[in-house]
Design a protein around this nucleic acid. Structure first.
Ligand SMILES: Nc1ncnc2c1ncn2[C@@H]1O[C@H](COP(=O)(O)O)[C@@H](O)[C@H]1O
Ligand SMILES: [Zn+2]
Length: 441
DNA sequence: GTTCTAGAAC
DNA sequence: GTTCTAGAAC
């Protein structure tokens, strides 16, 4: 009767020909509705028809030598909710050896469709607000993707109860009015609002676990946002980029091709060292912080205020003095440590550090820490990948610069070997167990 | 089935 | 550097 002209027709998310025109006519996105799907595939209550169809098509295309891959792609895009990303489908297509592989692929790809009883994605339009509901059985479905080519990819994690929203192109996607950013991904939880392209049509998401049939899995409810348990005292986690007023660069937007950007992970030390709460010692030349992921009971990092990216940048007498001072400060940290008499310490540098801003590791040799998790961690502190401060200083004194031997990175792949008795251990857990035999409480 | 690693993504 | 997780190894 009165078709609201402002209310655009509904569309399915995945029709590639339905690109949104950014500016002029905003369209709300319609996730597949149960009704539509039932019309399209009359028998999909168990999904078997679609499943067989997919298997046949894929088999046909593979026999045709993958030249007919576009047919698979079209098929893929005809799915509103996908069990796999396209890249993953392609990867698996290459690995298919037999019909069973095809069935496995189709089963995953169609997980949602094959079990519509358990996984449904529907929308309820209330005025302008749209709510996205994913009804699922956690036993059947972990992830569901809804992908709009070139715009946005939504990955629903049914176990964790959130949706990861990835903005694919330049057209903006917003979560709670904050633009996600091209290529970036953010979590969206129930209660948050999603806008695609423009700010006109908010979407929210709901997860509903279908418990009919099986008992509820013992899964913890939504966790409170306290990530930091344990020892950090009164730590208010500062996530947002701070507008520190001591920033010297206020007048000028420097050419930011530089690696000084605060958001980049490799600049994490620069942020930590400036945070007074993290500093355990400072003087006019250096600052000491506790390693955020300590690989032993005691693990400090000594950093100069001067921004020296790495050892390659070291030159001359001044840097020599600086390194000597850093080592001295490191020794002072050990001296004030009450457990020092019972422990051995080393101080040195990683030959190839991952983090920017040169830093001296001062670390106890118990290596008793949950943050020590893998072979790289182990070998980076127990092979020649770890260069004693003394040796670095000597090299700088003698040659005027610091270089790293070729092949050093290979050291990280060496088998795990106890640094005390040189016994070889197969796995990290067995190594940790072994280390206990060397530790006196 | 579970443990553990390793590689991708961030 | 860390986190996450697929799949290798057990
Ligand atoms: N944001 C951070 N704050 C403090 N320490 C960190 C941070 N990120 C990484 N680390 C530690 O810094 C060290 C850098 O190691 P590397 O670059 O190999 O010398 C590692 O021991 C990390 O545990
Ligand atoms: Zn040993």
């Amino acid at each position: 009767m009165d078709p609201d002209p402002r209310r655009p027709p509904s569309r399915t998310f995945c029709n590639p020909s339905n690109r949104w025109s950014t500016r002029d006519e905003p369209k709300p996105v319609t996730w597949v509705s149960r009704d539509t799907r039932q019309q399209n595939n009359s028998q999909t209550a168990c999904g078997s028809n679609l499943f067989t169809h997919f298997c046949k098509i894929i088999l046909k295309c593979l026999l045709a030598g993958l030249s007919a891959k576009t047919e698979i792609m079209n098929l893929y895009h005809s799915l509103t909710i996908k069990g796999l990303r396209w890249v993953e489908v392609q990867r698996r297509l290459l690995k298919i050896k037999n019909v069973l592989d095809i069935k496995v692929l189709c089963k995953q790809l169609l997980a949602v469709h094959a079990h519509t009883v358990f996984a449904q994605c529907s929308i309820l339009e209330r005025g302008m607000a749209v709510s996205i509901s994913i009804k699922y059985s956690s036993q059947m479905l972990t992830y569901a993707y809804v992908i709009c080519p070139g715009l946005v990819e939504l990955k629903a994690d049914c176990n964790k109860g959130y949706v990861k929203v990835k903005q694919l192109g330049s057209n903006p996607t917003f979560v709670d009015s904050v633009e996600v950013g091209k290529g970036m991904e953010v979590k969206m939880e129930p209660g948050q609002q999603l806008h695609i392209v423009n700010q006109l049509y908010p979407y929210t998401v709901h997860f509903m676990e279908d418990l009919s049939g099986e008992p509820p899995p013992a899964k913890r409810p939504r966790e409170p946002p306290s990530m930091e348990a344990a020892d950090s005292k009164g730590a208010s986690n500062v996530k947002v980029a701070k507008q520190a007023n001591h920033t010297p660069s206020s007048g000028r937007e420097s050419a930011t091709s530089n690696n000084e950007k605060p958001g980049i992970w490799s600049n994490g030390l620069k942020a930590t060292m400036q945070d007074p709460k993290m500093q355990v010692y400072k003087d006019d030349k250096v600052v000491v912080i506790k390693d955020k992921y300590p690989k032993a009971r005691y693990h400090w990092l000594v950093l100069p205020w001067e921004s020296i990216p790495n050892m390659k940048a070291l030159r001359g007498e001044e840097h020599c003095d600086l390194l000597r001072h850093m080592q001295q400060v490191g020794q002072r940290m050990v001296a004030q440590c009450k457990d020092a008499p019972a422990l051995r310490f080393r101080s040195g540098y990683h030959a190839i550090p991952s983090m920017s801003h040169i830093h001296l590791h001062v670390i106890s040799q118990d290596f008793d820490s949950p943050a020590l998790k893998n072979k790289k961690h182990w070998n980076s502190f127990t092979t020649d990948y770890f260069i004693d401060s003394q040796d670095v200083i000597q090299m700088l004194e003698k040659t005027g610069k610091v270089t790293v031997k070729e092949g050093t990175s290979e050291l990280l792949k060496l088998p795990l070997r106890c640094h005390v008795c040189h016994k070889e251990l197969a796995t990290i857990p067995s190594l940790k167990e072994h280390l206990k035999t060397h530790i006196s409480v």
